[in-house]
């Protein structure tokens, strides 16, 4: 899968040195990367540090990202390589060279939270039961987006409705699920 239009805009901004775009990208991809690194390292602390190093590396190397793959795939590869290197060198906390960066580690670590790790299986199951109880139109649009990775245009075609309707259904589903997660103290 290559980059989507939205990702291309994001990458162009980051390449142009836009730190706001970089920060937004970190917020967007951090939960997935952290989760992947926890699965790989079996350690929350190590995963957190690798995530931090990964995003620093992304900022340094973004010029070399050509868009042949999805942005997260590229980020994930960097993360895995760092994890392997760290593992090979018995994991030294002082191993990263971060002194010449415009983006400070502090900016990145602000967005690394333990939430993904804290959403346990029971809470996941509660969330999925809630999703199943949503109106058909909402859960269909949301599922096609989140599970199938379909574009709004494709979802509109499958659901036979305008793209604007898809957009509001996906948002409404997200809003209701997040409200529920808040109510249940899941997040």
């Amino acid at each position: 899968m290559s980059t989507s239009h939205g990702e291309q805009m994001m990458v162009e901004q980051i390449k142009a040195g836009n730190t706001k775009a970089f920060e937004a990208m970190v917020i967007q991809h951090q939960p997935k990367l952290l989760s992947s690194m926890i699965a790989y390292t079996k350690s929350y602390e190590q995963a957190e540090e690798i995530c931090q190093q990964t995003f620093i590396r992304v900022w340094q190397k973004i010029e070399s990202f050509r868009g042949d793959s999805a942005l997260f795939t590229w980020i994930y590869r960097i993360g895995i390589n760092l994890a392997k290197n760290n593992f090979a060198s018995s994991y030294s906390k002082n191993s990263s060279n971060t002194t010449s960066l415009d983006i400070s580690e502090h900016d990145i670590s602000n967005h690394i939270s333990p939430e993904t790790d804290l959403i346990d299986k029971e809470s996941e199951s509660t969330i999925f039961n809630f999703i199943a109880s949503l109106e058909m139109e909402l859960k269909t649009a949301f599922s096609l987006r989140e599970l199938e990775g379909r574009s709004y245009e494709e979802i509109a075609s499958i659901m036979k409705c305008p793209i604007g309707t898809v957009r509001s259904r996906i948002f409404r589903a997200r809003q209701l699920i997040l409200e529920f997660m808040n109510q249940e103290n899941i997040i």
């Binding site: 917020i27 967007q28 997935k32 967005h111 989140e146 997660m181």
Partner: peptide, 18 residues
């Protein structure tokens, strides 16, 4: 920013389940 982070969190939960 918090909302965007929560959207990402929700996506991750969905992907994990998948």
């Amino acid at each position: 920013k918090k909302t965007l982070h929560q959207f990402a969190l929700l996506s991750e939960v969905m992907q994990r389940q998948q």
